[in-house]
Amino acid sequence: MNNIQQGIEYMKEQKFEEAGKAFTEAIEEEPNDPVGYINFGNLLLHLNEFDRAKAFFDKAIELDENATTAYYGLGNTFYEQDDFVKAKEHFETAIQKGLENSDVYFMLGMSLLQQEQPRFALPYLQRASELKPDDVDALFQYGLALAQSEQINLAMEIMEKVLKLESEHSDAHYNLGVGYLFRSDIEQALKHFDEALRIQPDHLLAANGKGKIEEILKDQSE
């Protein structure tokens, strides 16, 4: 096991000081290899040392302008600092330079959602869920973006898929409740709001949705 692999193992074990030493040794052994800098950047990002993380990712790109995971690391660094415009730019660059995995598409989609651009986020979140079909978060955010883009029927189909993967997903139940309310299917809407509240009793949006339905039923009975 080389220093990079050892450092990654230390990170998994949350032995961050040891990980830092291993990555430092990797950089000292091969100062012109961007991989050591990228991994040290990831460690610093994990520790919320954003400026230092950027410096290591920038050094990796200086050594190799096609170091895709360095651009991805920079994207994550800006995302964690709520700079979603710069995050988007770096995730796009990572993809343009050949990075093809679920995470980068998911983060690009999330950067666009954070900028309230759900229609632009859709293809990236869809691609993320295609590349990792069992990723509940990617699938749920794709469904959410569909709902925000007023594609209600397709959004509901996606939320059903989320529940097949994770039956106790309170937010998926809530969003299905909203979808059925949109269709004026009060019985199904109430069922899903109740499920959301059973799973998460403090789900305020589901409680609000249930309250609205109870008002409708009360008005109908009078």
Rank of each mutant, 00 (worst) to 15 (best):
I152R: 03
H192D: 07
K191A: 05
V178N: 12
E187H: 08
E157T: 13
R183I: 14
I158H: 01
E168A: 15
A196W: 02
I158Y: 07
K161E: 13
E168Q: 15
E160G: 07
L163K: 06
E157L: 11
L190F: 09
L181H: 06
Y180F: 14
S184V: 06
D194F: 06
H192R: 00
Q188G: 05
A172R: 04
N175E: 03
D194S: 10
R183M: 15
M156K: 02
L181Y: 10
E160C: 02
L165S: 10
L190T: 11
V162I: 09
A189F: 02
I199Y: 03
K161Y: 08
S184I: 07
K161D: 14
M159C: 05
A196S: 04
E157W: 03
E187Y: 05
H169L: 10
D171Q: 14
N153Y: 13
R183F: 15
L190P: 01
Y180E: 03
A172G: 01
E160Y: 00
I186W: 10
G179A: 08
D185H: 02
V162Q: 11
S167K: 15
H192E: 14
K161P: 11
L163Y: 03
N153E: 15
H173E: 00
L163R: 05
K191L: 13
I152W: 11
A189Q: 01
E168V: 13
N153R: 12
L163Q: 08
S170R: 07
G177I: 01
F193R: 01
L197N: 09
R183D: 15
E166H: 09
Y174R: 14
L165C: 08
H173N: 05
K191S: 08
I152L: 13
Y180I: 00
L163I: 05
Y174E: 08
A196E: 01
Y180P: 07
H173T: 00
M156T: 06
